[in-house]
Design a protein around this nucleic acid. Structure first.
Lengths: 310, 310
DNA sequence: GCGATATCTCTGACTGAGTCAAGCATTCGG
DNA sequence: CCGAATGCTTGACTCAGTCAGAGATATCGC
């Protein structure tokens, strides 16, 4: 049950945060909340009090008192905001920046001590996992299209294509190991020998991790390109990534002078089919076959690249 | 910088925990700390006050007062411990269990509301990431040899072999994409056609995720097997995984009747070489070559499988 | 067995982080 | 121009959590 997992994590992490502050000297002579305010100020030095309130969800009176203290200690200066005299603009003084840096340093030390218990080989996994938790929980903001980036494959990405194709089709359609063999063959052929001007692979990246791919290779027929291995991870669907990948292939194929673009798929892959249709592919042939441990309907689709460009 | 990542995560998660408690009704009529005590009691019903103190690191006086309140409310009963009359044994009453259940239910709801913002496709990633953070930070208990399991590859594992070989050798030795092509070729050949009685792949699994692999295939020479693609993830090194993988290959090859086991490696892979030596492999030939964008010394190693079995 | 010391618990006294409500100044919507 | 809303401040308060002392009992050295 996911809720229980999350609650267990909350209990655990409450202890972690508590343990970091064990000596009770971390924030002296300020409190955790004061130190959060100071941090916020140090990282966006020209802020209105109202922004601090919403950002840290503090009580207005509480914040006002905290800022009083900071002003007495010479950490900040308060002026009224230009565009709204009710608002107070808060700016850090040099002394305030010093203090913020001091607190940051202490926090660094404390966290460093915690991190020292983690083998350095594991640290990338730790930061990766923390980033995952953050992005998934951060107000559930759904990723936007602009967060997705298309790029060329780097080390390991071709293997990733094989792994994710095999795992996803096994999970979603029950394909057996033959499918992984097919994909591995396609990828190996590409990796071993391809003309970078006429053949290419794109990786769709979201928050630094691959979430989709597509390949464009020469076909046997003259002046014909073949689109292969279109894939979008379930968690990244609905962002138009499939469309962008297909567009990339179409544009590329047209740009380097192919006259036709073909692809082979199966009718069970309905989402993919709609993407192809949107880009103007038409069904050229359909044939039942038994592959990957399933009875399937193979489909050949074709898009003429000459003619009217929309 | 990892420390900064962790601190960012701490700030973030402080907000998450704060937000969960937003309505301020979560624990009413008790406080967070009281509710933690109640939780602890509900999950180990027969506890001494001293245990609670150490477990939750509470002030003795504070805990005493909390227990007073609980006793007045009829949630607990206090008796003196048998083995030490100074200690107080605390047991939940039926009413105490009810209250604990009620609080747990409210917390579940609150967490459930948070989780509702996470698309269900992402939830496995969330719990996985949380588990990773917990296991890495919780006392850094190093994994033990018994936690590692050798198994046959499942869907996606062959692709994983390609991906991790390529990524690791690129990171550790600067190999270029040619190496990924070579691995992809080897894996594709295996996936497409292999004799399961004479050729096999092993995946080493730690806590449910792959951390190592090795392959055994027929060689061109008669009655000769070839060991390929031995790999152990950095974070799983030092657990004897390499030895276990090589042992698996040696035992398998000997068991199915091969007379020789050969392998090709490069002298920069010193850790792997030591593994091979431990298993009795001897260096048969060495030859410089330029591959994968590097000048390397290729080595052929050989182990006779007939003769004295140790 | 006895004294010195440590441990467990409880209570009184206190601190101070955070909340609530009222009031003043200003902007916004009509 | 008026009522409502927003931003900030201050006074008054609550109550979570800390600290110190005291009583009871265990443990250790002798």
């Amino acid at each position: 049950m996911t809720v229980q997992d999350v609650r267990a994590f909350n209990r655990f992490y409450t202890n972690v945060i508590g343990a970091l502050d064990y000596s009770r000297q971390l924030y002296a002579p300020y409190t955790l909340t004061e130190s959060r305010v100071l941090y916020e100020l140090a990282h966006s030095p020209r802020t209105d009090a109202a922004d601090l309130r919403t950002e840290l969800s503090l009580d207005a009176g509480y914040l006002s008192r905290i800022l009083n203290k900071f002003e007495q200690d010479g950490l900040i200066e308060r002026t009224t905001s230009h565009r709204d005299p009710r608002r107070r603009r808060v700016t850090l003084t040099a002394r305030g920046r010093e203090t913020a840096a001091l607190l940051a340093e202490r926090a660094d030390e404390s966290v460093g001590a915690l991190l020292a218990t983690v083998p350095s080989a594991d640290r990338p996994r730790l930061t990766e996992a923390m980033r995952t938790v953050r992005t998934l929980l951060s107000d559930g903001r759904p990723p936007r299209r602009e967060d997705v980036l298309l790029r060329e494959p780097g080390p390991g990405d071709l293997g990733w294509i094989v792994a994710r194709n095999a795992a996803l089709y096994a999970a979603e359609y029950g394909f057996n190991a033959d499918y992984e063999a097919l994909v591995a063959r396609i990828v190996a052929d590409f990796a071993e020998d391809h003309d970078p001007h006429l053949e290419r692979v794109w990786i769709a990246e979201l928050d630094g991790r691959p979430v989709g791919c597509v390949m464009c290779v020469r076909d046997d027929a003259p002046a014909t390109a073949r689109l292969r291995l279109l894939l979008v991870e379930p968690e990244a669907r609905g962002l138009g990534i499939g469309d962008r990948l297909v567009s990339a292939v179409v544009d590329f194929a047209r740009g380097v002078g192919y006259r036709d673009l073909v692809l082979w798929t199966n009718d069970v892959l309905t989402a993919a089919r709609r993407v192809y249709q949107r880009h103007g592919f038409v069904l050229a042939a359909e044939k039942p076959h038994r592959s990957f441990g399933k009875d399937l309907n193979g489909q050949d689709w074709r898009l003429e690249l000459t003619g009217t460009r929309e």
